Simulated scan of single mutants.
Amino acid sequence: MARVSQAHLDARRRQILDAAALCFARNGFHATSMQDVLKEADLSAGAVYRYFSGKEELIAAIVQEVLGEVRAAFEAAALQSPPPPPDSLVAGVLSRTLALRGNLTLDGVPAFPRLVVQVWSEIPRNPVLAAVLAEGYGNVRAAWGRIVEGYQDAGMMRADIVPDHVARTMIAAVLGFLAQQSLFGPAPVEILQDGLRALMSMQDTRTRA
């Protein structure tokens, strides 16, 4: 019997995850059945269950993958001295995250923002997913905190600001932008980048007066 290559196994796993992501984005977690995933992936039950035991493992794997990519990107930025400014850093990471899932579309519209909102809606009733997301969110916050410390060390940001406060704000900006795309339609990442750049350029003229 011929041995299956690791590349083939990785491609099959990718196929299943992408199919599940489309199904969850289209109908939500609870309205999606494993039969829906099998049909979307065009695979047999045996082929899918070889990798994942069910919907719980599928959605957890999708969330872990995305958060892992984002964390790795911000951790790499934190190692730079100084780190890239927030507007270009956020835009770059978000653009890469969306580009990696550019093949996931529903009626020609990117599915990833809708998937993010569907994951949020599942968290209150799914403790396993909530734990996965909490861990990933904590890792991204920590990475952003180190980025802020890099800004402060370089004199780019006030030293009296708590790094975690900035971290939470930047994450909120990205998640809010994705929510807007899910609710109101696609928008280029440059909009978020320009908005952040404008906020970064503000000066409080009231103190001068």
Rank of each mutant, 00 (worst) to 15 (best):
R3G: 10
Q6D: 10
H8Q: 03
D10S: 12
R12L: 13
R14S: 14
Q15G: 05
I16L: 05
A19N: 06
A20R: 01
A20E: 01
A20C: 07
A21I: 02
R26S: 09
F29H: 11
S33W: 07
D36G: 09
V37F: 05
L38W: 08
E40M: 12
D42K: 11
L43I: 07
G46Q: 08
A47M: 13
A47P: 02
R50Q: 14
Y51P: 00
S53T: 14
S53P: 04
E56R: 11
E57Q: 15
I62G: 00
V63L: 05
Q64W: 03
Q64Y: 02
E65S: 14
V66D: 09
G68W: 08
G68P: 02
E69Y: 09
R71N: 08
E75N: 05
A78R: 02
A78Y: 01
P83D: 07
P84L: 10
D87N: 12
D87W: 06
A91E: 03
A91R: 01
T97V: 13
N103R: 14
L104F: 09
T105P: 01
L106R: 06
P110M: 07
Q118T: 08
V119C: 02
V119Q: 00
S121R: 15
P124R: 05
A130D: 08
L133R: 05
A134M: 08
E135P: 02
R141W: 02
A142S: 14
A143R: 02
G145T: 06
R146I: 03
R146M: 11
E149Q: 13
E149H: 07
G150E: 01
Y151F: 12
Q152F: 06
D153A: 15
A154P: 04
G155S: 09
M156W: 12
R158F: 08
R158Q: 12
R158V: 04
V166C: 05
A167E: 02
R168E: 12
R168L: 10
T169I: 09
A173M: 11
V174H: 00
L175A: 10
F177I: 02
Q180T: 11
Q181A: 07
L183M: 11
F184P: 00
P186C: 10
E190K: 10
L192M: 12
G195F: 08
R197T: 07
M200I: 14
M200L: 15
Q203G: 08
Q203L: 10
T207E: 11
